[in-house]
Design a protein around this nucleic acid. Structure first.
Lengths: 145, 145
DNA sequence: TCTTGTTGTAACTATAATGATTACAACGAA
DNA sequence: TTCGTTGTAATCATTATAGTTACAACAAGA
């Protein structure tokens, strides 16, 4: 099991739009940087557009950031691309036997404990903004230039 | 995307073995409590056996805890059933364009930041023992009895 | 020793998600 | 009006999950 690469692709797209704000960022051009098909990019852009993280120009083409980087955190991106149903990172088996004491109560206990683990993960995502990420990325680019 | 229910099934099995240590815990009987097929149970038991969390009696049948509950934490169970490849909760797109500054560096940055999120989640799992879980479960059982 | 119930596994199926791709109508600016 | 682009549907291959049948190997009691 892995969380869909839609998430990392979305972060890649936002980074491009931040670092290359002047360019004509068409789905074709973005796809060239991400290494995938333009349709994949359009689909992710559609999801980012729906939550107003980007604007996309139909017809003439091009995508643009709709918020400043400091206003975008990774959890918002993660939610936007819908890679994990909210509160449902762990799949708890759905039909334990209600006639068995353990079966009747295990779901509630697992939900309680596992949601904590999930929340810890999401808190880290919420605490990282695209601004910080782009800073790290820019330093990395300079260091290897 | 969801983390396979093998994990929650494994926790269910261990809870049963803890709460019902006297019984004859065959895969058939366990399957009745979990609400699935005995073969599913045998496969999970096989994984738990491999890391010495349980012993299983071939022939005459039955599974038994091989460690005390306080020695088993949820991360060990999670690892045992192999639901997430180590360090790979997030699938980072694999072929960004090395000729593009962002493409050439995004993987390293994402790996750094996302592994932190993953580690935060796993730390919670590591901090919960089966002993604590069974305590919570037992209280839940009593409260609803 | 034979019988019985169980485990361990292979093989197969159905279902769902992912990622890629083709195709094309709708759009917008030059 | 043309041309490049977006938005979206449809299709496909691949993979993982969960369930199921089948059966050899096994262990212990009768």
């Amino acid at each position: 099991m892995k969380i869909s690469s839609r998430f990392s692709i979305a972060v890649h797209i936002l980074s491009l739009l931040a670092i290359q704000p002047s360019g004509h960022s068409t789905s074709d051009w973005i796809a060239g940087s991400v290494g995938t098909n333009p349709v994949i990019i359009r689909r992710v852009l559609g999801q980012l557009k729906k939550v107003k993280l980007v604007t996309v120009r139909a017809g003439s083409g091009g995508a643009f950031l709709a918020k400043s980087l400091s206003e975008i955190n990774l959890l918002a991106v993660y939610r936007a691309v819908d890679v994990v149903e909210e509160g449902r990172l762990f799949h708890i088996h759905e039909e334990p036997n209600p006639a068995c004491p353990v079966g009747a109560n295990i779901q509630a206990v697992l939900e309680l404990l596992l949601s904590r683990a999930q929340e810890a993960m999401e808190k880290i995502l919420a605490d990282v903004t695209m601004e910080e990420l782009v800073n790290v990325l820019s330093k990395q680019i300079e260091a290897r230039a």
